[in-house]
Amino acid sequence: MSSTEFRSAFKTAAVIGAGTIGLSWTALFAGHGLTVKVTDPRPDLAEAVAAALAEFAPHLAAQGLDVTGLADRVHLAADVADAVRDADVVQENGPENLEFKQDLFAQLVAAAPARALLLSSSSAIPSTAFTGDLADASRVLIGHPFNPPHLIPLVEVVPGERTGEAAVRAAVAFYTLLGRVPVVERKEIPGFVGNRLQNALSREAIYLVEQGVVTPEDLDRVMTNSLGIRWATVGPFLGSHLGGGPGGYRHLAEHLGVSMKKLWAGLGQPSQSPEETERLVEAVEKAYGSSPYSQLAEARDRKQLAVLSALDSAERKEEN
């Protein structure tokens, strides 16, 4: 699908749910010139949307987007039916609850135009789990972002058992032309890929803190000064391939495979008892609780933009 075809296919987007993820999608869609209709039962919807657009506009501008008239492209909808009435694409961001999604997608299929692509930001529930009773599930699939989606490029595109290939191709085109990096995952698994990797690392991180090996802030320093840098540039498999020297991943597997398996067997299982959980929460709050959420989030986003900018510059140099 060319850029021109994209613009003709996707002009209006509906955002269902205006929490952290939904507001970020709203800004991204509007930043790329789409008309956006947002709905959420929260009583402060207008204020939340206005605040998010004001906060995220500089992030979009840093990515080369024209944010002139950004708010003019965003409209509040009275309900789900109103939001999706003329939509070309719908991005759902509701609670991570199976029954909720079953009911909501029944509404979306009934109310949205037949052409509309129906995407869910579900972070753990595969679409097959909530589309079994739908008359038409061919255009329903997962488009799971990483927070915040207007900054973090990855979108996991996960078709369900009844998703049509045309919908998969359309989702990939949609996210690509929004400057995202869609990765199609061909087998449904709870949590998909990104969250499973994140949870695996989080489990060991929690265990190490529980065991008194390291504090939360020092564990974060370990990550941001080693693996975070490496994985942001090459990822785990390419990093391991390079770690094997000229012999590559094969050399690494042959010479370190046995010791790696022994290490896997020794990875921890956090107890997460109420007492251990409370101690962990208190340790994290001691490390970061003195700073307001807005300040921490601003610092995170500023650093993430700097990383993305540096990577983009390096990739352009490689191409030239």
Rank of each mutant, 00 (worst) to 15 (best):
H75E: 07
P126V: 02
L34K: 15
E217T: 11
G289M: 01
D312S: 12
H59F: 05
Q272V: 06
P159Q: 10
L60F: 05
S127Q: 11
L134V: 10
A62V: 08
T39D: 07
L219Q: 09
A124H: 08
N147L: 07
V84W: 09
Y288I: 09
P153A: 13
G64I: 10
M260H: 13
E276D: 10
A167F: 14
A48Y: 05
D312K: 15
T26W: 13
F237G: 06
H150W: 12
Q198L: 14
R186V: 00
G160P: 10
G228R: 02
H255Y: 11
N320G: 12
F192W: 04
I16G: 03
E47L: 04
A283D: 07
Q211Y: 07
L104M: 15
N225Q: 15
D72W: 05
T35N: 03
S123N: 08
A297W: 14
P246S: 14
G212Y: 00
G247K: 03
R203G: 05
V158W: 07
T224F: 01
V184L: 02
F56C: 00
L141D: 03
R230Q: 09
G244D: 08
A9P: 00
S226L: 12
L117Q: 11
G132S: 15
P216N: 09
A111K: 14
V36M: 09
S2W: 03
T12E: 12
R279A: 15
R316L: 13
A106C: 02
E298H: 08
A9F: 01
T176P: 01
N93R: 02
A52H: 10
P58E: 08
G17M: 07
V74K: 03
K37F: 09
D136S: 11
A167N: 09
N147C: 12
V49S: 05
F146H: 08
G33Q: 14
P236C: 05
P159I: 10
E315M: 12
I125Q: 02
A78T: 15
T277I: 04
A171L: 10
A9L: 13
K286P: 00
S259V: 11
E47M: 04
V15R: 06
A314F: 11
D66F: 05
A200I: 09
K187H: 10
N199P: 00
L296P: 00
Y207R: 11
A48L: 14
V80M: 06
E217P: 02
A51W: 06
L134C: 03
T12D: 04
S2L: 06
V172G: 06
P95D: 02
D72T: 02
A166F: 01
T131L: 03
L177T: 07
G179M: 06
A48T: 01
L256E: 07
S3Y: 09
L280G: 11
G179K: 07
S226F: 12
L219F: 15
A106N: 12
L238F: 04
A265R: 12
S127L: 08
N199M: 14
E55S: 06
R169P: 00
